[in-house]
Amino acid sequence: MLTYTTYSEAGGVGKTTVSANCAVAHARAGHDVLVIDMDPQDGSLSYLLDVDDERATGGADNLVRHMIGRPQGPFEDLVRETEHGVDVIPSHNMLERLTELLMKTADLEEDTNPDPGYAYPMHEQLFRVIREADVPSRYDVLVVDPPATAGPHLYNALFATRNLVIPLELSGKGEQSVAGLQDLVDGLEAELGINIGVLAAVPNGVKGTSDQETYLTDLRELGFDVPVVIRDRTSLMEGCWRQQCSAFTYVEEHRRRKRDYELETLSQFETLAEHLAAQVGLESPETARAEVDA
């Protein structure tokens, strides 16, 4: 099974669009895909894929209730099917209180546990929920999209997936510079006490300036895997948010004329998804069928 968290410390680098379009690319390759949206902000992946209609419904069952051991129904009922068969567990406003609710649960669990040395595993609750729901036997790919801030949302995502895909802007500005990527990974590993693999760094919104080419060279020299470089596609991505769909659906259903550079971007998402799958030996069913037919 391929599992990864899409994360960047810097905002505005296309984290959510990379998550959504990679998920769709995996599904188009024939994989069963589950995406978990852990970003409490409006305009998260749930909005992009048009499944955020119960975000503000207080009585609705949601992922947080399952993480704190107070589910109102089976895990399967949280899942919403979206375009190209991608399953999504949508975000909910209760995610804004995840830290508070996990801390309250920790207090209760530690106070009532007979072992005086017991420590509630606050960052392992998403992993527990996924394991109990038998997600690995039901899906080929799991993608988690947390907010762009450190904390229980991110830590639970990483403990469950153990892998990172890092979208980034090739710029000297912002919190996350090329030189700081390894420090970011080292810090997360130290916080969680686990090894975290970086499956890919994904430069996004690249305009091809000389400075950006230098940053790209630096990124590769530092040893980061850069399978694709996604050029500046502002119009395409704005269209996706406007129509609430992936780039694949936007080009297929909302463009009267197919633009070669946009088709190139779709191909890059497919290349990225294939590269990520290859990292764990996950073969595309579509590729396997083509080889048999040949």
Rank of each mutant, 00 (worst) to 15 (best):
P146W: 08
G223L: 03
E169M: 04
T217R: 07
E175A: 15
R138H: 15
D111P: 08
D211A: 11
V202K: 05
R97F: 14
V144M: 04
M122E: 14
D140K: 00
V129S: 03
D183I: 15
K173H: 14
G193E: 09
S177V: 10
V165Y: 11
A106N: 01
A119H: 14
M122N: 07
E213R: 07
V144S: 01
L108A: 00
V198L: 12
D186A: 09
P146G: 05
T214M: 12
E169T: 04
L158I: 08
E191V: 13
E189D: 04
Y118R: 12
G208H: 03
A106Q: 01
L98W: 04
P146F: 06
G197M: 08
K173C: 11
M122S: 10
A200S: 05
D115T: 13
V206A: 12
R97N: 08
D134R: 10
T99A: 12
G172P: 14
K207I: 13
L95I: 10
N113Q: 03
E109Y: 06
L102M: 10
L154P: 00
I166C: 09
F127Q: 05
G197Y: 12
F224S: 07
D140Y: 04
A160M: 12
I196M: 06
D225C: 04
V144L: 13
L102Q: 01
N163G: 03
D140H: 00
E221Q: 14
L102R: 00
L199K: 08
F224L: 09
A201S: 06
M103H: 00
P136R: 01
L168N: 05
E221W: 03
I166K: 05
P114W: 00
T149W: 15
H153W: 06
L188T: 07
L164A: 10
S177F: 08
G172D: 06
L199M: 09
V202T: 10
P167G: 11
D225V: 06
L188G: 00
M122D: 05
S171A: 13
G187E: 15
P147N: 09
L95C: 15
R162Y: 00
V165H: 10
A179M: 02
L222A: 11
L154A: 06
E100V: 11
P203M: 02
T112M: 00
L158K: 00
L181Y: 04
Q212F: 12
V185C: 09
L170D: 13
I130V: 14
P121R: 13
L192V: 15
K173Q: 03
Y118A: 13
K104Q: 12
M103R: 04
D107I: 12
E124H: 13
E124L: 14
V202N: 11
G205A: 07
R131D: 10
L142K: 02
S171F: 05
G223H: 06
F159M: 02
A190E: 04
T214A: 09
N204F: 10
P147S: 15
T149K: 14
D115I: 15
E132L: 13
